[in-house]
């Protein structure tokens, strides 16, 4: 049904590469504009702790070479880009033998699972509420959901997370405050583990869903109001189609596309916000390890995690772009559009 032309696919792939390249270049450039370098700073810290380190100048030189921080900047930049292409993010500065990719490999599934479930839930629920808001024949209680959920929309994810922890975890002790699964639970495909993961994941997911649902609802309401005024809606009514069918296949179907665009545009913000949610909940995803890396001034890990985050968001946007034709076949992917 969809006409996913090769040209469109290649253009989108180009956008994906461009986004990652811009992100990688920002991460590379900005720290180098700042005075001082991480290796010297680290050796100085070691000197403070140990009192005296022999040949500290040689050590700095050796480590600079080890972490690719020597040579003129264009050579560094070329090496950096090449290592990014090979997904070789180097070694952790603070926990030396550990590779950055290992740290990310351990934490990425948790972030990916939590954030994507939360985003999908809030997107679906928010859009449904918003669409119902603009629909004439709905019970009054649904109309009241929007103002309530909108009051939460302006609260940052992580602040709502603090509130959830203080009430649901500390005061009433319904949910655990920290971690991804309970102690003494064997990880694996057994019911105990799955239940424990769900129990621990519910609060972080809730803090994202509740605070972002209203945003989708508001946008969808606006779109539905516009769609409702179209001629084909009047025709559908005149034909005597059932109200439910008009709502789903005429109303929502035609209001969806701008919302999907908005989703693609907001994924970056959602990913950024979820970093802090993980920190608040001690959830061992990218955000949590990013914070650990900040505390221990582990620059390679910081760069690696942020790079992975940019790649992740860009990939999600790419997937959404490629799904467009299925959501709205009206769009043709001829040149000059998209």
């Amino acid at each position: 049904m969809s006409e996913l032309t090769l040209g469109y696919f290649l253009r989108r792939l180009g956008m994906w590469l461009l986004t990652i390249w811009i992100g990688a270049t920002l991460i590379f450039t900005i720290p180098r504009l700042a005075p001082g370098d991480p290796i010297t700073a680290m050796v100085e810290r070691m000197i403070q702790q140990a009192g005296y380190i022999e040949n500290s100048a040689d050590l700095i030189e050796a480590w600079r070479a080890r972490f690719g921080l020597d040579g003129p900047w264009h050579v560094q930049y070329r090496n950096y880009l090449l290592s990014m292409v090979r997904v070789d993010l180097g070694y952790s500065l603070a926990n030396f033998p550990a590779r950055v990719t290992d740290i990310i490999g351990r934490s990425l599934p948790w972030t990916l699972g939590m954030v994507s479930i939360a985003t999908i839930l809030s997107f679906c629920a928010g859009n449904l509420i918003g669409a119902l808001m603009a629909w004439r024949r709905v019970p009054a209680f649904i109309r009241n959901i929007l103002p309530v959920s909108l009051t939460f929309t302006s609260i940052p994810f992580f602040m709502f997370g603090i509130l959830l922890i203080s009430f649901l975890a500390f005061k009433w002790k319904i949910f655990p405050a920290f971690g991804n699964y309970g102690r003494g639970v064997e990880p694996g495909w057994n019911l105990d583990f799955i239940l424990s993961v769900l129990h621990h994941g519910l609060l972080p997911v809730l803090s994202i869903v509740v605070t972002s649902m209203g945003f989708w609802a508001l946008g969808m309401r606006g779109m539905m109001v516009t769609t409702d005024g179209e001629d084909y809606m009047i025709l559908a009514n005149a034909k005597g189609l059932r109200s439910r069918r008009i709502f789903w296949f005429y109303g929502i179907r035609n209001s969806m596309l701008p919302q999907v665009t908005a989703l693609a545009l907001n994924l970056g913000a959602v990913a950024g916000g979820s970093l802090l949610v993980e920190l608040i909940f001690g959830y061992p995803g990218l955000g949590y390890f990013l914070y650990q890396a900040i505390i221990s001034a582990d620059y390679t890990v910081i760069q690696g995690i942020v790079f992975m985050l940019i790649v992740g968001v860009a990939t999600a946007v790419l997937i959404l772009d490629l799904l467009y034709p299925m959501i709205d076949p009206r769009i043709t992917y001829s040149k000059g559009q998209a």
């Binding site: 900005i30 720290p31 950024g272 900040i294 620059y299 910081i302 940019i310 968001v313």
Partner: peptide, 22 residues
């Protein structure tokens, strides 16, 4: 093209890198 790709970069994440160095 540039604005479409910048808009998907998580600002907070890049700022974290910056302020970790500066």
């Amino acid at each position: 093209t540039i604005s479409d790709s910048i808009i998907t970069i998580p600002a907070l994440a890049v700022l974290i890198v910056i302020s970790a160095f500066v």
